[in-house]
């Protein structure tokens, strides 16, 4: 399965280089063509690949860890917290003074949200409580973003930031890629080896510990990893929701519901979803290009409704 997914991702990546207002840009001659590919398309495709990958992987990690098929960075407020922290870095002037402030703030925001959720789950939280917690974190983050924007002297701040938060990978140059990619790759490397212990957590925290899982250090490791991935992704691309929900869902049954086995395929499916969605928004005949995050929400939200309805009655009861 992974081989086919890898092939799909590779094809979509190449298509992402080729498709847009100028099709097959390399036909336009050496100078212009390669400028389009190198300066515009390549950073966009690479960001789509990495951001989709880390969102799909984060969804799989959070679902395995929280033992809940509805956990997802966007739905439970991790992306929103990263967005809030990035907005703070942006409007405090920190991001202008020091380029890495943007991803670092996003990472800190995401890690705080993950830690809050981890605390809630330790005290025994079911699906309803988890989603309510997500609603609360999302609402607080949105309110705080409004507050920061209201305090900002820049009259265009609101429009600028709401467009940015809607999620997009347009016009991000190689500089953005270089800034965020290392964090995303390190975050993925941190969580990819945790699959065994996510498998053990299928039996609950006590049994996982009796099987040798050190749940405390696992929690820190996953908080750090998801924080790095979602924080860095959100700080360059805004909130791209539902990828982390859909990707694990599509492959879970195919790997026998083993949480550890969903990690790598979810990463590949997430990359394919974001690369594919980013190609679609380029081709839609809208006056200005639709935001990527808006598109994934349009497609993903009904998916969430379906997943909630299909979720076992027992999950909802707890």
């Amino acid at each position: 399965m992974n081989r086919w997914l890898l092939l799909l991702v590779a094809v979509l990546f190449l298509l992402s280089l080729a498709v847009g207002p100028a099709w097959w840009p390399w036909r336009l001659g050496h100078e212009i063509g390669w400028a389009i590919v190198w300066e515009l398309r390549l950073p966009r495709a690479a960001l789509g690949l990495l951001i989709g990958g880390v969102l799909g992987l984060s969804g799989a990690v959070l679902q395995g860890w929280l033992r809940n098929p509805l956990a997802e960075p966007g739905v439970i407020g991790v992306s929103a917290c990263a967005g809030f922290a990035a907005v703070c870095a942006f409007y405090s002037g920190l991001a202008a003074a020091f380029a890495l402030a943007l991803p670092l703030a996003g990472i800190a925001g995401a890690a705080v949200a993950v830690a809050l959720l981890m605390g809630a789950v330790r005290s025994g939280t079911g699906t309803v409580s988890l989603l309510l917690m997500g609603v609360a974190i999302n609402a607080i983050a949105a309110a705080l973003i409004s507050l920061v924007l209201a305090l900002s002297p820049n009259p265009f701040a609101y429009q600028e930031i709401s467009l940015w938060l809607a999620g997009s990978i347009v016009d991000r140059d190689l500089h953005y890629l270089a800034m965020a990619a290392p964090f995303m790759i390190i975050g993925a490397a941190i969580v990819l080896g945790a699959g065994r212990w996510l498998d053990a957590l299928s039996l609950g925290e006590d049994t996982a510990r009796s099987l040798g899982a050190d749940t405390r250090s696992l929690g820190l490791r996953l908080t750090l990893g998801v924080g790095l991935m979602v924080g860095a992704a959100t700080s360059v691309a805004g909130v791209i929701g539902f990828v982390g929900l859909i990707a694990p869902h599509l492959i879970r049954a195919r790997v026998g519901f083993r949480p550890g086995a969903t990690l790598v395929p979810s990463m590949l499916v997430g990359a394919a979803l974001v690369l594919g969605a980013d190609i679609v928004v380029r081709l839609l005949p809208t006056a200005s290009e639709l935001q990527l995050g808006v598109f994934t929400s349009l497609v993903g939200a009904p998916f969430l409704v379906r997943a909630v309805r299909k979720a076992h009655a027992a999950w909802l009861a707890t």
């Binding site: 498998d199 053990a200 957590l201 299928s202 899982a213 026998g256 519901f257």
Partner: peptide
Amino acid sequence: SAYWPLRARDLVALGRL
């Protein structure tokens, strides 16, 4: 209990972790 509908053989294999 288990949180995911694992296959029985996979479930039992968790005892080998």
